[in-house]
Amino acid sequence: MDRLAKQFLEEDAANKELYVQGIIFKNDRVLDVLNQKFNDYLFRIKLYSYIRKSIVFAAMDIKTMESEIREKEGLYLNVLDADFEEERINTIADAPMDFIEEIYGDKENIDYREIFADKEVLQAIETLTDRQKQIIHECIIKDKEEEMVAKELGITKQAVNKIKQAALNKLRKEVGGK
Rank of each mutant, 00 (worst) to 15 (best):
150 A>S: 01
120 E>R: 07
5 A>D: 01
122 L>N: 05
30 V>R: 05
153 L>E: 01
90 N>R: 07
79 V>C: 06
72 K>A: 15
23 I>S: 05
107 K>W: 05
13 A>H: 13
144 K>Q: 10
70 R>D: 14
7 Q>D: 10
70 R>V: 09
65 M>A: 13
95 A>G: 06
177 G>Q: 15
148 M>G: 10
57 F>E: 15
166 A>P: 00
112 Y>K: 01
92 I>W: 04
28 D>R: 07
148 M>A: 14
79 V>M: 08
91 T>P: 01
101 E>C: 02
85 E>S: 12
175 V>P: 05
108 E>K: 06
7 Q>W: 03
157 K>A: 05
36 Q>S: 10
23 I>Y: 10
166 A>T: 05
152 E>L: 03
53 K>L: 11
38 F>S: 02
45 I>G: 03
45 I>V: 14
126 E>G: 06
64 T>D: 13
48 Y>T: 14
35 N>V: 02
155 I>C: 02
3 R>Q: 10
165 Q>K: 12
26 K>H: 12
34 L>R: 00
169 N>T: 09
134 Q>V: 05
28 D>S: 09
37 K>V: 03
51 I>G: 04
127 T>C: 06
97 M>R: 11
68 E>D: 08
79 V>I: 11
110 I>S: 00
113 R>H: 09
169 N>D: 14
30 V>Q: 07
130 D>L: 12
173 K>G: 09
146 E>F: 08
146 E>W: 03
22 G>V: 01
17 E>V: 06
36 Q>N: 12
16 K>F: 07
154 G>T: 04
15 N>S: 05
103 I>Q: 04
68 E>G: 00
106 D>A: 06
107 K>F: 07
123 Q>E: 15
29 R>F: 11
119 K>A: 12
47 L>I: 11
97 M>V: 15
154 G>M: 03
157 K>Q: 13
133 K>N: 07
155 I>P: 02
27 N>D: 10
29 R>W: 07
47 L>E: 15
44 R>K: 15
102 E>H: 08
13 A>Y: 14
32 D>G: 06
55 I>L: 13
173 K>C: 07
118 D>G: 03
132 Q>P: 08
5 A>N: 06
111 D>C: 01
156 T>V: 02
47 L>N: 11
70 R>C: 06
58 A>E: 12
9 L>N: 01
134 Q>L: 14
12 D>R: 08
15 N>E: 04
49 S>I: 05
107 K>G: 07
145 E>M: 11
16 K>H: 08
33 V>I: 11
30 V>G: 03
82 A>Q: 14
130 D>G: 04
120 E>H: 09
91 T>C: 06
35 N>Y: 11
160 V>R: 02
78 N>F: 06
169 N>M: 08
156 T>E: 03
146 E>P: 13
37 K>G: 01
73 E>I: 15
112 Y>S: 01
145 E>D: 13
155 I>Y: 01
68 E>I: 09
50 Y>E: 09
91 T>N: 10
34 L>C: 02
172 R>E: 14
34 L>F: 05
5 A>S: 08
173 K>P: 09
14 A>V: 11
136 I>F: 15
169 N>E: 13
174 E>S: 11
172 R>P: 03
90 N>F: 09
120 E>N: 12
129 T>Y: 00
148 M>C: 08
32 D>M: 07
